[in-house]
Amino acid sequence: MIPSKLAYHRPNNVNEAIQMLQNYGDDCKILAGGHSLIPVLKQRLNDPEHLVDISGLTELKGIRDNEKSITIGAGTTHAEIANSTAVQQHAPMIAQAAASIGDVQVRNFGTIGGSIAHADPAADWPAVLLAADANVVIKNTGGTREVDIDQFFLGLFTTAVQEGEIITAIRIPKTAFNRNSTYVKFPHPASRFAVVGCAAAVAKEGGNVTAARVAFNGVSSKPFRDMGIEKGLKGNALNADTIAAATKNAAAEVSVMSDHFASEKYRRHLAGVYARRALGAL
């Protein structure tokens, strides 16, 4: 499969890239690791006339361990995130999700920024970033803005990123719930995309849950936090009874996807199973 004809541009820095996005408007797509975009171009689901290749921009790469947060450059690969000791220590679910994406080859080149910009409902990043209370740093001609992850994923392949904007980084706060977190998924056997994935982050004091964030991907057309589960955990001891009661109606408040891999009923069932597995590990 071969993409449609297109023009290729390689900016020298993020500002130049943004200028190119301004010039080419909606005929333009950003190319980073290419592991979401190139399959789309090959299937001709999208037909941009211009590609702006930001894969060489060093200012978008790397992981910074700050006092109150970890900042992951948008151009950082899944493999780099999986291997980061700072990420493993402060938000284990982020490292686990990174290590579970696709396969070695995909993790070597796919980037976190590219994946969340694409916003595939079955991708691994959305659930863990929702559970982590992350912020997405976005740059445009006017400067930089930060979007709360709860306002970032708007729907199927749709995010809060506007025309002419670039995701530059993802910020993970250093919190008690992120230090005690995990990500589990039922992977599709060929693609390794999540048929159902669940990220759970729980802070406890004196045995009782003080903060809980539980999010799913693969289940609905947009990744979501399950407020019912979170409410069911808060204030209670994190034991099998609490977990069973809280997850009984997992994914009850969303419209659940159905396809030839998994029916709506089966997916909703799996949401409960994977929520129990995630929470049981904390």
């Binding site: 290729y8 190319l31 290419g34 592991h35 190139i38 399959p39 590609l51 290749d53 894969s55 070695v104 080859q105 995909v106 070597n108 080149f109």
Partner: peptide, 16 residues
């Protein structure tokens, strides 16, 4: 291998 790392070469453009 691209710069020593395994890559699926159907998922990269030659220009990259």
């Amino acid at each position: 291998h691209l710069d020593g790392k395994a890559l699926k070469s159907c998922t990269m453009l030659a220009v990259q």
